[in-house]
Each structure stands twice: as C-alpha cells, then as structure tokens.
Amino acid sequence: MTTHFFCFPIEGSVYVPRIFTYQELLALPSKTIKIVLECAGNKRALFHPNTYGEQWKEGAIGQAYWKGVSLTTLLQYTGVHHSAREVVVEGYDTGPRTDMEGTFRYVRSLPLHKALHPDTIIAYELNGRPIPYKHGYPLRLLVPQWYAMASVKWIKKITVIDDTFQGPFQTTDYVYYPHKNNDVGKHPVTTMNSNSTIQQPLHLSTLSQGAHLIKGIAWTGEGTTTAVDISIDNGHTWLPASLQQNSAEPYSWVRWSFRWHAEKKGEYTLLSRATDSLGRVQPPIAVWNRKGYGYNALCMTKVKIE
C-alpha cells in the first residue's frame, strides 16, 4: 500500500460523505501529542486467580509523539446528523476468532463526544517519521487516555452511526466481566486506571546499605497524576515521591522518584501508589475480571539490603 494512492471514506450518518486522501490529510492543520498507550491486558499475569490471555507483566505500555489531524476536523467537512451516536473506525487487519466461525476485521467505535474531542486524532507520524507498518501505517486512530485497543491501526474507513455498535471486539472482547461463570455486571473497557510502576530498583535485587533512588512512572486515564506515595514497609507507612510533571503534555506519564536511605539489613517490600486529579487511587488489590483487563493494584518490588 503506497501513501500516494491511499484514501479512506467517511460515510454513514453524515450530510456530505467524503473520501479523504493521504495527501489531503497532510495539508490539513495538524497537532503533535505525546500519548501513553497501555494495553488493556497490561499486568494481566498479576491477577489472582490467574486469567486466560497474553500473560503480560509490566511491559505492555509505551509512549510516543504522534502527529495527525483531529478527527473532529474531518467531521466538519462531512457534517454529522443530529441523530448520530457513535463513530465506527474499521482497520484493514483481519483474522479468525476461537469463539466464532469465520474471519473478522478489527472494528471499534467511539461515543460521539469522545470522537469529537480535539485530541482524538488520525495520526500519520510517529516520533517525527511516517508510522511504521506494525504501529498502523499509513493511518492510525489515537485516543488519548483510553486503553490502546481503542486506537485502531491501519484505518480502512470511518462510519458515523445512529445506534450502538455491536462488533465482537467491542461487545465480547474488551469488556469487564466481574464474575467467572456469568456476565452479570459486564461493562466496557474504556479509560485507563490510575496506575504506577516501580522501575528501579529491580524486583528481588540485592542492595547495599546506604542511599538508593526508588523511581518509576505513573499515569492515568482521567485528569492527571497528582501524587505518588511510596512505602518501604509493605504499606504500613507512606511518604510522598517527587514528581516530574509537564502541564504541556497532559497525556504522558509522570516520572517520579524517592530517595531512600537504607540503614538496616534485611528484606523490604517497596510499594508505589498513584493518585489522579479526580481522586482515583491505586487500590491494594485490583478488581478481578474474567479477561484480565485494567490491572492497577499497588506496584510491589521486593529487595534485600546486605
């Protein structure tokens, strides 16, 4: 697929259906946003009892600079009917499912208010270069603060609809199922939970007595991270970490650090706990769900001081 000939339509519940070419997108007003993308299954392996699926630990997350055009800018060209409720984005990727016969294209929808947010973009660059194929070349939807399943790769077309989309990647997958054997209380996966990770020291590392820097990252799907607290005694006491925040990058993670003076030999359980501006705090135990989404319990690292 060459970008010179690439195009995609916006159709459905719009006043003027239109086909946009890649070159037309490049000519429209653009924005560059630093965005955290976290797999909804990040840290799935930490759930107890365990859940089926890719056994991610703490590595299914990343952030980058994405450049593109606001989806709302494109929808201004087509107009949107007053009856519209959702915007459906279809990717080129297809594959079989184990729970259904046939092959299925990856298709997801956004509620209209999220699709019209000025920072929901159709991206064409990643870190200053055309998006690599594995990350969605030539065009990818980017939805800040939602888990990464919403950021559809390899865009094929966009359709505005008047009802609620019912595709399997929206109503079967990427749904919280609170119970093991029934679907009572199920609800969709959307915004990222308030979360943090300890990057240093490494889990089960051996350290010498003296000063050590405990550091890591924190992020959230609503508002901004406002505090990270650290415990060196398995949660009995907590102290505030220092945050490195940038108000110009509201969708990036926050780096934090805490200087610890380890005076006594022994084994220590270090914990980190993030809080965001809406008051959402990492819980001691993550809310278990059948597909293992949204794990955000306190981050724990054990170390030995010798």
Rank of each mutant, 00 (worst) to 15 (best):
H203S: 11
N181I: 10
Q55I: 07
G235R: 04
V107M: 07
E306I: 08
S30Y: 04
I161Y: 02
W288A: 14
N195G: 04
E101Y: 06
W66I: 02
V228N: 03
D173Q: 01
T103E: 14
Y177R: 06
D276S: 05
W253P: 02
K43L: 10
Q245V: 06
V87F: 12
P9N: 01
P188F: 10
V89Y: 05
T220I: 01
S205P: 03
V184D: 11
K180E: 15
P201C: 10
A84P: 07
A84E: 09
Y106S: 01
T73Q: 03
W260E: 05
F47G: 03
A64H: 00
N42E: 00
Y177A: 10
T190K: 13
D173S: 01
Y176E: 13
K57Y: 13
A248G: 10
K264R: 02
T171I: 04
E267T: 15
L26A: 08
T206K: 14
D233H: 05
R273M: 08
K157N: 08
S272N: 15
L270K: 02
W219G: 10
K156L: 13
C7A: 15
K43W: 08
T51A: 14
W154D: 09
E11C: 11
A40N: 01
I198H: 05
P283L: 05
I122E: 11
R85M: 08
C299L: 00
G62A: 15
N246D: 15
T224R: 02
P29Y: 07
T3E: 01
E222Q: 04
K186Q: 12
T226Y: 03
K67E: 12
T120A: 13
A84N: 05
D173T: 08
E306F: 12
L207Q: 00
L142Y: 04
P240A: 04
P284K: 00
D233W: 10
V89S: 09
P130N: 07
T21Q: 09
Y22T: 06
V281D: 02
G185S: 11
D99K: 09
S109K: 00
V16K: 10
A115V: 13
K57T: 10
G53N: 03
Y174E: 10
L116W: 13
P132L: 05
G292D: 01
I131C: 07
E58W: 03
L37A: 09
V14K: 11
Y137K: 07
Q209F: 12
T2D: 03
Q55Y: 12
Q145T: 04
E11T: 02
L141F: 13
T98G: 14
I61C: 14
R290L: 14
A45V: 14
G12Y: 12
E222K: 01
L75A: 11
N193I: 01
I121R: 11
A60F: 05
L28I: 07
I19V: 14
M192E: 04
Q244D: 07
K134M: 03
I217F: 15
D119I: 03
K67W: 06
R140E: 10
Y174N: 13
W154I: 10
K153Q: 09
A218D: 00
P96D: 06
T51Q: 10
L71C: 13
Y92G: 00
A115C: 12
I121F: 13
G62V: 07
T220P: 02
L75Q: 06
D163K: 04
H82Y: 06
G136Q: 12
A227G: 08
L271F: 15
S196K: 02
K153L: 08
H261W: 09
L75P: 14
L26V: 11
K156P: 11
Y295M: 01
Q244P: 02
I232W: 13
F258Y: 15
A60S: 02
W146K: 01
